[in-house]
Simulated scan of single mutants.
Amino acid sequence: MRIGCPKEVKVHEYRVGLTPESVRELVSHGHEVWIESEAGKGIGAGDADYEAAGGHIADAATIFAQCDMVVKVKEPQPHERAMLRDGQLLYTYLHLAPDPQQTAELIASGVTAFAYETVTGPGGSLPLLRPMSQVAGRMAIQAGATALEKEHGGRGVLLGGVPGVMPGKVAVIGGGTVGFNAAQMAVGLGADTTILDRDPDVLERLGIHFESRARTRFSNTANLADSVCEADLVIGAVLVPGAAAPKLVTREMLGCMKPGAVLVDVAIDQGGCFETSHPTTHQDPTFVVNGIVHYCVANMPGAVARTSTYALNNVTLPHALRIADAFDQPGGWKDALRNDPHLAAGLNIHAGHVTYPAVADELGYDLLPLAEILA
């Protein structure tokens, strides 16, 4: 199989779909790998490193025109979508539910698109999303602490406080991977931390882990409003796999918050869990609504590109190998899905149709069932 990895072009996105080590692994399986020149610059990997691993350096147009599968990190940008073609495979983060334009253009292209964020693991876990959720959760506290500084429009609160001065209050909405990692960082800084979730099992697990270092609250409307109003920093860490995030913090709630308090919406990739959120970039990360600072960067892990890229490749490479190794076999890439239902859950678009139920429901498309594709 000929596999291509273009340079990421989203604003301030420094990650890369394949490391030189991943290229070496793919080449050792007999595959041909093409890398766009300087694609690895953001992680300290030069073209010579990729060539030493057995890769070939090419431009983006050649990669999109001639490679059987394109491996990326972020969703293809409009000019990249225009280069995708019928029958080509795309393997990357997509987050289609809140992005009708991207969905329509991928459908029109005829591409077969696998989304990292919907590939499953045992027990319904999301192993390809997990490492980036870990990074984003930890970064959320760093970003929130910076935004709280007066220079950046915040209240001027130090999360950990100092002797004789109370620490800042942090509310983490959602106790999954993002929320857990955010809470770990907040607790580590000495912040007064509350975690909200609707799952009693999650709350019990968090309570056992953090003991008295953080509080847990059931996330009903009253508790959510109370925690948000008291907080100096609110982390939105809600995830509905493959679907748009629910709007849990309303515009009305901002009225009870302290001026200069900060909202960090880690769910912004899926449309955001704050009513007043809209995507921002590392270049211009915050905006203010009703006196409340919003941080809504849609590719937070891109700021720590080397850590993020290697963590991502650890989990994406095995599935890339399964697809590539099956490609030239009689059953083709579909055999990889027949043999691995977890990978099959990653299929979102195929030959002009939506194949992931949550995306079809959210955007109003007819669903092409996986069983029909693999029949």
Rank of each mutant, 00 (worst) to 15 (best):
P78A: 11
P78V: 00
P78W: 00
P78S: 06
H79D: 10
H79V: 15
E80Y: 01
A82R: 11
M83F: 08
M83W: 03
M83V: 07
M83H: 04
M83R: 11
M83T: 08
L84H: 08
R85L: 01
G87K: 09
G87N: 10
Q88G: 12
L89V: 00
L90A: 04
L90S: 07
Y91N: 05
T92S: 15
Y93A: 04
L94N: 06
H95A: 08
H95K: 10
A97F: 01
A97K: 07
P98A: 11
P100Q: 02
P100A: 00
Q101V: 15
Q101P: 00
Q101G: 09
Q101I: 14
Q102P: 14
Q102L: 15
A104Y: 05
L106K: 04
L106V: 03
I107R: 13
I107D: 07
A108C: 09
S109V: 10
V111F: 02
A113V: 07
A113T: 06
F114Y: 14
A115H: 10
A115V: 09
A115M: 11
Y116G: 02
Y116V: 10
T118H: 07
T118Q: 11
V119W: 03
V119S: 04
P122I: 13
G123F: 07
G124C: 07
S125T: 15
S125V: 07
L126Y: 02
L126G: 03
P127T: 12
P127H: 13
P127K: 13
P127R: 11
L128T: 13
L128R: 09
R130K: 13
P131H: 01
M132R: 01
M132N: 02
M132C: 09
M132S: 08
S133T: 09
S133W: 09
Q134A: 11
Q134R: 02
V135L: 04
A136G: 05
G137S: 03
G137P: 10
G137M: 01
G137N: 02
R138E: 01
R138V: 02
M139L: 15
M139Q: 12
A140V: 12
A140E: 01
I141D: 05
Q142P: 02
Q142H: 15
Q142W: 08
G144D: 04
G144V: 00
A145T: 11
A145D: 11
T146V: 13
T146L: 15
E149C: 14
K150F: 14
E151K: 10
E151L: 15
E151Y: 14
H152W: 12
G153C: 06
G154M: 00
G154D: 04
R155I: 06
R155W: 08
G156Q: 08
G156S: 11
V157G: 00
V157L: 01
V157F: 05
